[in-house]
Amino acid sequence: MIMARPERVLRYAAVAGVAVLAVAPWMVSLYKVHVLNILIINIILATSLNLVMGYAGQFAKANVAFMGLGAYTMGLLVTRADWSFWIAWPAGALLAAAVGTLVALPALRLRGLYLAIITISFVLIVHWSFLHARFLTGGASGFSVPHPNYFGLPIPNIQATYYLSLLTLLGAMWIVRNLVASGFGRSLLCLAEQELVAPALGINVFTTKIAVFALSGLLAGLAGGLHAVTLQFIDPQNFWLLQLVVQLCMVALGGVASLLGSVLGASIMILLIEVLRAFKGLWEFAIGAILLLTIVFFPRGIAGLVEHLFPSLRERRHRP
């Protein structure tokens, strides 16, 4: 028997996965479309977090804050200022990217635990602001957001939003894949492993860190906007530490510095949460257990295991 080459298997699997996602809205219930949409959004979030934590090796954990800023900015501009979603959504993402560059500033001096503490404090502050700026955000009870205007597209809004998420995911993955397989991606890995060596190779550590935080903020901001229109609701609980832990879990389980890892980690976590939803309170326990087991047994996550078994599947950091 001729063994299929693993690279080819992976490529077919990716194409098949995208094809399944593309036809899914016509095959499954509306609720399942909703779950798949959340899954897609979480792949974007895991990729965003992986860029900063995995590739660039920065212990920064501000992702849910970027996501929240994207969601709230979009939601408030649409509901309070009557902006079109199509302008408000990128505006929210750009704001998240701009704030991302600010968060990069402490990362220029701080490392490891200190950077983690600073960025988690940032998440707390942003969450607190959402909660307490009641006149604007509705506080803990949140506010609802309308469907985007799809200009008479002849499919239901839920499906349309699903396709918007899918297109965003494909675009984001294409761009991120281009970036990690370039001199930029190689500099990120150099920052992660040999930060002192990076400048001696001509890498401008300052601009590289700013760029990766901005990119991460942009992706999380876009995902936040999509998340809001998917739920048609925004409230602070979606941008809280628990969500941060779930996203960390996706990256750790899937594999750091790996796009395949982000996809697998996010998919497995979301499906698991869905399956365990019936057993109240179980999924928090499951997450803790998974995080613990992965770190002990597969420190490089599922993608690390896959690459170990099939070295030809190692992510390429150059083209062609």
């Binding site: 001199g183 890995l189 492993e193 001509g202 150059h318």
Partner: peptide, 26 residues
């Protein structure tokens, strides 16, 4: 950098003289 191959490690050395805009790469 252990996560890079030998070829990619050497390419890292080109950063000093040859860089591309992020938009072009993206």
């Amino acid at each position: 950098v252990n996560q890079l191959t030998v070829l990619e490690n050497v390419m890292l050395g080109l950063h000093a003289t040859r860089r591309q805009s992020l938009l072009g790469i993206a």
